[in-house]
Design a protein around this nucleic acid. Structure first.
Lengths: 231, 231
DNA sequence: AATGGGTTATGATAATTATCACTCTATAAT
DNA sequence: ATTATAGAGTGATAATTATCATAACCCATT
């Protein structure tokens, strides 16, 4: 992990418009003063389940996963987030300690604010509080909907769903490098690693996708969508 | 559905302390003026997926389920809520239209406020906005955690989980009347109705529970907990 | 160049869960 | 009273998914 010494210009920050649209320039400058950036390499933890919550984070660049480990020591992946999506977290406003872990799935940059400062802003600036609420609601809504979708599908449908998720939502390309391992896909969809691998192989044999290690090319999107929906 | 003409005294409302702790007495009186109560019988819809969101609701009494129907016309149950838990919804602050349905699982009373009034309050009273955010976060956190728990378990563990959920969380008793059908349990845990019935019968044969139709008595809680955890 | 660990891959078999078929209530509607 | 209708319950069989075993491969370390 790398604490950035770069003093960035928040007035130019893309996130500002989304996140701080009701913060005055003056407030923004204050926030900028206390803001810190940290860089994480793929695989590093950003937050560990059980950590005390005293910072407010958002993802500036990269890709992260939200996960939780079970009593048996296995991991369950709750969701993935890309920049703008990831406005701190579930449980930032409802708990003292994180209930989930967050780790970098790709090299990532996180902007960090003191949580009390953010809370104070929210308490003094109701429009900001509303914006925050909207963002948090959108994020949790997405998680709940996505989990429901996965839940109603069988193995093949779930794999198709994941491929489409990365293709359409994360990368917006039909060819991409899968940022996670087969095991992580399994942890996400609640199936075994072997079955994830087997299903990907099947899709390859059926010429629905091409596989070159981590690189995936979706060759027959129509069929993949169909499998995701009904298979 | 029954629109209540009862002009209730909000200053006496139990919910007030939880929900409106940062609202002044003056504001509370205003809110009370516009508040409406509605009664719903078991089985009735309170909100239908797709409805426009223009009210803010909370559950005063009863028990409700949050659900969504799939493309195949089947239902998936997302969660259950009892009074105090149920502060309007997922998606109230992130969308124009409800993404889920809410229906009464037991006879229920709902207090209704105009959403714009609530939003205005929140915009003018940041502490209220923070309270609201805390409540919404708590509710969604609970849903995400609960769904994760269910996801990692097998059929028997899921059934045990549901029984303990009603016993410990909803009714706080070891004997209770199951407010939902076997089919609804199936819709909640993502298994078939037949397997829900079969598993309940097994638990009965193994003397873990006693069943008298809808009435359930948990006879061997330790084992049930064990099954929920590891079975 | 060799070793070891983790990921990917595949097959055989076992376990779990779904589907279908049918019975038996209870209850609501006519 | 009689007939639908939905829920509860059970068994046989099929489909789906997990487990276990084994191998190939990549890549980092020695």
């Amino acid at each position: 992990m790398n604490v950035g010494s770069v003093k960035c210009d928040c007035t130019q920050c893309q996130l500002k418009n989304l996140f701080f649209s009701h913060v005055t320039l003056e407030e923004l400058t204050d926030i900028c003063e206390i803001k810190v950036e940290r860089n994480y390499s793929k695989g590093e933890f950003i937050i560990k389940e059980g950590d005390k919550i005293n910072e407010f984070l958002y993802l500036k660049e990269g890709l992260v996963k939200l996960s939780k480990s079970t009593v048996e020591g296995k991991d369950q992946i709750i969701s993935f987030s890309k920049p703008f999506d990831f406005v701190s977290l579930l449980s930032v406003f409802s708990s003292d300690h994180y209930k989930y872990s967050v780790s970098a799935v790709a090299d990532s940059t996180v902007c960090i604010l003191d949580l009390n400062v953010v809370k104070n802003r929210a308490q003094n600036n109701a429009m900001f509080a509303m914006d925050l609420m909207k963002r948090v609601s959108e994020a949790t809504d997405k998680i709940v909907l996505d989990n429901l979708e996965i839940k109603r599908k069988h193995l093949k449908g779930r794999i198709a769903h994941v491929l489409l998720y990365f293709s359409d939502y994360i990368f917006e390309k039909d060819e991409f490098e899968l940022p996670i391992s087969r095991r992580e896909i399994a942890e996400y969809i609640g199936m075994t690693t072997e079955n994830v691998i087997r299903t990907l192989s099947e899709f390859r044999k059926d010429k629905i996708i091409k596989i070159f290690g981590k690189d995936i090319l979706i060759a027959d999107k129509k069929r993949l969508i169909n499998i995701s929906e009904f298979g």
